[in-house]
Amino acid sequence: MPKATRGVLIECDPSIKALIVNIDSSQHNIILDELDDTHLMIHPSMVEVVKQKLNKMLAENTYNPNEEAAKATGK
């Protein structure tokens, strides 16, 4: 009998997948199965956690003009 596991299928870019793998690496409580470069099966209760952490990571990687201006005037 094959196994049936309840989860949430995530379809995304390889770069986003790498970020999710990174988020999972500390506790390994998010990813049920790494299906391929652009597909993941994750634990249903962890979808919101992943969404929040991704948003935070992506925001940190976004250019902040105010920060640059502060640096420039500091010189």
Binding site: P2, K3, G7, E11, D33, N55, L58
Partner: peptide
Amino acid sequence: QIKLWQLEMDRIRATDGYLFSE
């Protein structure tokens, strides 16, 4: 660059389902 990140967020699709394996 900001647009690119927004696009990447838009490109994530999440669907409830069952994984059949083994």
